[in-house]
C-alpha cells in the first residue's frame, strides 16, 4: 500500500544520543500494524548497549498490547545487561493500559525527558 513505509517512519519521530543515553521519541498510534517497526528500532538501539534508553511517548495517543509487548521485551533485554530503560510522558489512556496490565510499577515512568535524564 502506498505510503506504508512513510507511516512506519512517522511513528518513530526521532532518535537522539546524549553521551551513553539514547532517546527514542515515538508519535501517533502504535498498534499491531506498526509495533513491529518500533520493535526493530528498539532492538537496534539496545544492541548498541547504551547505559540508558529513554522512550519518549509524549506524542503517543494510542497504544495497544502489541506496543506494550515491545516495551516489556525491551525492558527485559536492557535489565539483562544491567542497563536502564525509562519511559517518558505517558498519555492517560496509554497509562491506563499499563495499570490494567499491572505493568505500571514494572517500568520507570517520568513526566519529561529532563526528569528522566536527571
Amino acid at each position: 500500500m502506498a505510503g506504508e513505509k512513510d507511516k512506519f517512519q512517522n511513528v518513530v519521530k526521532d532518535i537522539k544520543r546524549h553521551g551513553d543515553t539514547v532517546i527514542l521519541s515515538l508519535t501517533g498510534e502504535i498498534d499491531m500494524h506498526c509495533s513491529v517497526h518500533v520493535r526493530g528500532e528498539l532492538l537496534e538501539i539496545i544492541q548498541e548497549k547504551p547505559a540508558m534508553v529513554i522512550i519518549d511517548m509524549n506524542e503517543v495517543e494510542f497504544m495497544d498490547s502489541s506496543g506494550l509487548a515491545v516495551l516489556v521485551e525491551a525492558l527485559q533485554l536492557t535489565r539483562r545487561d544491567n542497563r536502564v530503560l525509562k519511559l517518558v510522558g505517558l498519555h492517560p489512556r496509554v497509562r491506563s493500559m499499563f495499570e490494567i496490565s499491572r505493568l505500571d510499577n514494572l517500568f520507570q515512568i517520568y513526566n519529561s525527558q529532563a526528569e528522566a535524564l536527571s
Partner: peptide, 18 residues
C-alpha cells in the same frame, strides 16, 4: 497469569478488565 512478566498475551485480560 499477570505475575508471569513476559511480552504478549494480554489481550483477553484487557478485554475482560474493560
Amino acid at each position: 497469569d499477570l505475575d508471569d512478566i513476559r511480552p504478549g498475551g494480554l489481550g483477553v485480560h484487557i478485554i475482560k478488565s474493560i
